[in-house]
Nucleic acid binder design. Structure first.
Length: 218
DNA sequence: ATCCCGAGGG
DNA sequence: CCCTCTGGAT
């Protein structure tokens, strides 16, 4: 399955638009419960107005909220961005830290967001367990866990570390294009012959994952 | 477990 | 109308 995913999505990459670690961090915070396409609609305006952590730390809440409103959760996201920026200024001299341990201490930055920034802006291999990754690896039978950290470790043990970041993107791309949450397109899936959850529909991925556990290299 | 919250698909 | 979208904090 791993090989087929690589052949199907040779160009899988982060689809958020950004030019530096701070921009990616902000874009990733905005991406919660929101499509990347919509995030990319607001970030040009946002990045034009705020360039540094100091800029965000001193931002006017109402102005920032208005810019990011369409991404949803805009009050919480504004609190996260301003709080994150203040912490970056106070504790890291205005530079986004390049270590997981530091990133997850920032307000509004959890493990998933931290791994996105590490993997894409710092070149540190990281597994990104988001809603897609969790749904697909469970459907594939690569894990039966529901805790994101356990999934990260279990799947990480099945995949070479140097492939962690690109593998995350391939799985996420597949989740967006074929193995869609609401309506999996099993008929169009290149993994159909190998997938334990083939044809089981959007519900009951748990039972499907328990049937067979072929692993990523079968 | 619940809240935050807008936009788009089916 | 109901669900989901590359989550995180309480």
């Amino acid at each position: 399955m791993n090989r087929i995913l690589g052949e199907t999505y040779p160009d899988a990459h982060c689809e958020l638009d950004y030019g530096n670690p701070l921009e990616l961090l902000v874009a990733t915070i905005l991406s919660a419960q929101c499509t990347d396409k919509r995030v990319n609609m607001v970030t040009p305006v946002l990045f034009a107005k705020y360039q540094t952590a100091e800029d965000y730390a001193a931002a006017d809440r109402a102005e920032l909220e208005e810019i990011i409103r369409s991404t949803g959760f805009f009050r919480a996201k504004t609190t996260s961005i301003i709080g994150m920026a203040q912490a970056v200024c106070e504790r890291y001299g205005g530079e986004v830290p390049g270590r997981l341990k530091d990133l997850v201490t920032l307000p509004g930055v959890g493990r998933k967001t931290a791994n996105v920034v590490l993997g894409n802006a710092f070149g540190v291999p990281g597994i990104t367990v988001d809603t897609h990754f969790q749904r697909l690896t469970r459907r594939f039978g690569w894990t039966t866990e529901t805790d994101p950290v356990k999934i990260e470790h279990e799947v990480g043990s099945l995949i070479p570390k140097r492939e962690w970041t690109v593998m995350s993107h391939r799985i996420i791309w597949h989740g967006r294009r074929i193995c869609i949450a609401r309506k999996p397109a099993c008929g169009a899936c290149p993994l159909a012959d190998l997938c334990p959850a083939y044809g089981t529909g959007p519900t009951d991925p748990v039972a499907a994952a328990k049937l067979v556990r072929p692993g990523p290299f079968s």
